[in-house]
Simulated scan of single mutants.
Amino acid sequence: MRPKIFVSQPIPQPALDLMAEVADLEVFPWTHREVSIDELESAAQRSDYFFIMHTVPVRARYFGPGSRLKGIGMQLAREDLHDLAAMKAAGVKQIMSKPVVPTDDPDGYSLDGYGLNPRATGQLMVALLLNCAYRVNESDMFCRANGFFQEMTMQFMGHGTTGKTVGLYGFGKVAKQAARLLSAMDMEVLYTKRTRLSTDDETKWGVTWCADPDDLVARSDYVCLLVDFDDSKLKMFGEREFKLMKPTAYFINVARGRLVDQDALIAALTDGTIAGAGLEVFWTEPPNVVDPYVDERLRKMDNVVLTPHNGGATYASRGAQTLRIAEALVEEIKANWTG
């Protein structure tokens, strides 16, 4: 008998085709919501393996009486979402996708798999910034609602990018990919991080050091949050930081929602403390909730551009990531499945 793999959401076809060579597949069909814990527990009763993305929770209840699970394929293991101890105790294998070996990227980030994700996320950050700079979302909604326009109207005047300052609050892989685009758009690109780059690297990426994060926030026309999350950074950006920003400035977040005091952000957007925001991440995401959603207050704001935490959503990036999980599962099945 062939094993059965439950895939926690629709994924690019190449990964499905590869797994279908050695297993029967059941793919959770919906894209408008996450698979629930109850649905995963039920799937464990009829599946030998799970294929999950890294935000899908793993609970001990999946391994109870009647469970057929022998392994779970994943890209990242998260202690805040995945009960790894329960997996181990139940004898369910943690099947990790193989790491990407950097080859053709001069900065050590492979153009395959994980190296594509920071590129895609950095480019999405720039897209959010441009959307705010030229008020694309508001203009689109106006045209759809009204069906007419006044040529060269004053209604959707934007600040653009030429001669403006963008502050990169954090400077890792994603920031680097964004910086090279931003500096080509006639912008002054400031950055702050714990350790300053070398002079050569600052020249290479077209960025200027700003030692004081508050100074970066105050000087920037676009403040882009790009730091990694840990518990010490919970709500690190709140009312005080928003009040430091120019009233004409925009806040862009493609990092993590829990870095930001969301109520303070909503207040700043409502009372005109800042001009607007481009948001890819939200407070109401795992592990705070299993099924992530966007706060209704944000959804009603015209001066906010929203994307559903999907920064790596290119066929190349998502395709490579899912293919590597599939490869690990196929290798495991070929080596150990006995039927």
Results as ranks from 00 to 15, higher is better:
residue 146 N to G: 05
residue 181 L to C: 08
residue 143 C to G: 13
residue 199 T to M: 08
residue 127 A to V: 07
residue 219 R to T: 08
residue 165 T to L: 10
residue 161 T to G: 09
residue 111 L to N: 08
residue 164 K to L: 03
residue 181 L to G: 04
residue 202 E to H: 09
residue 164 K to F: 11
residue 147 G to F: 15
residue 150 Q to E: 15
residue 138 E to P: 00
residue 166 V to F: 03
residue 151 E to S: 11
residue 135 R to W: 07
residue 140 D to E: 12
residue 158 G to L: 12
residue 195 T to P: 00
residue 206 G to F: 11
residue 226 L to Q: 02
residue 160 G to E: 15
residue 121 T to Q: 03
residue 195 T to K: 05
residue 156 F to V: 09
residue 129 L to C: 05
residue 157 M to W: 13
residue 224 C to T: 02
residue 174 V to L: 04
residue 154 M to A: 15
residue 210 C to R: 03
residue 164 K to Q: 10
residue 196 R to L: 04
residue 116 L to A: 14
residue 140 D to I: 13
residue 112 D to L: 10
residue 146 N to I: 09
residue 215 D to F: 13
residue 117 N to F: 13
residue 213 P to E: 14
residue 211 A to C: 07
residue 159 H to G: 15
residue 149 F to K: 06
residue 237 F to H: 07
residue 133 A to R: 02
residue 188 E to N: 06
residue 195 T to A: 14
residue 114 Y to N: 05
residue 203 T to L: 11
residue 214 D to P: 00
residue 160 G to C: 06
residue 130 L to T: 07
residue 209 W to T: 04
residue 162 T to D: 11
residue 136 V to T: 12
residue 144 R to F: 12
residue 227 V to T: 04
residue 154 M to P: 03
residue 228 D to M: 02
residue 170 G to I: 00
residue 211 A to Y: 11
residue 120 A to F: 02
residue 212 D to P: 01
residue 125 M to Q: 05
residue 217 V to K: 01
residue 123 Q to H: 15
residue 124 L to S: 07
residue 159 H to P: 02
residue 237 F to W: 15
residue 224 C to F: 01
residue 189 V to A: 02
residue 135 R to Q: 13
residue 175 A to K: 02
residue 201 D to M: 14
residue 207 V to G: 02
residue 227 V to E: 00
residue 157 M to H: 07
residue 131 N to M: 07
residue 174 V to Q: 02
residue 190 L to H: 08
residue 163 G to Y: 14
residue 166 V to G: 05
residue 114 Y to C: 03
residue 226 L to P: 00
residue 115 G to C: 10
residue 131 N to D: 13
residue 114 Y to K: 04
residue 199 T to A: 15
